[in-house]
Amino acid sequence: MIEPLATDEKVVFERTEVLTDHALHYCPGCTHGIAHRLIAEVIEEMDIQDRTIGVCPVGCSVLAYQYFDVDIQQAAHGRAPAVATGIRRVLPPDRYVFTYQGDGDLASIGMGEILHAANRGEKITVIFLNNAIYGMTGGQMAPTTLPGQKTTTSPFGRDTAQTGHPIRMCEMLNTLVEPVLIARGSLSSPKGINRAKKLIRQAFELQHQGFTFVELLSTCPTGWGITPTDAVKWLDRNMTPFFPLQVFREPGAMPDASHKYAPDLKVRDEA
């Protein structure tokens, strides 16, 4: 319990009530905690705590259900978008449903679920933490691991001839017609964090219009084997050039006229 303030003191900052008092288990210098707080602050500011249902993944953020003070479901590895679909489709439309997923969860084992949830235009918000590595299992190669990046399962550096290039999820999802927001931010600087919060806010605000997706470039000093301060520099220097910080899709900004395509089905209908 925090002591009451003396009368001449002014509150300039309070921790959001949408996070529980549970101590975070994340490593020093990891940006999961920042991402959690941004999401929780958005939920508080929009006053939707009582209407929000979260879905957390398998990976470093597997314990996220302990930290968000909202109704929440813990999903199987990669399946959060399917779980969120189940929730979204059966609860009243005023609810807000979000998933929180890492790169192994979303871009590897859960590729099918994320693509199809996006393609159906599920009215959910997906927050995608991309730190180019498997953190929870101890630093293995992820689908987003950079070319030449050393991990415990690419000890000589990621060999793109054998394992391909990193997958750019925003760009891939941007080929689909239904999503209403696809954007990539970075948690490597205060400026980036402020922008990330705006993107998360925008995603939640647009959620009832359709599928919204925010990727956040994140650090993993433990998995990368460098200090937290070096990690933010490493992110800026190595990740951002391949994963550009961009808003790929906004409402009314379809990439082409695909959404207007209406095939001639007369033959089938008349048959």
Partner: peptide
């Protein structure tokens, strides 16, 4: 809701979400 899932794997996880939401 009738929803054709992308796979049986997705379908059973949709059940998890919906059943967990109480229906």
């Amino acid at each position: 809701t009738y929803l054709q899932a992308e796979s049986e794997v997705a379908a059973i996880n949709m059940l998890y979400g919906a059943g967990g939401a109480g229906v």
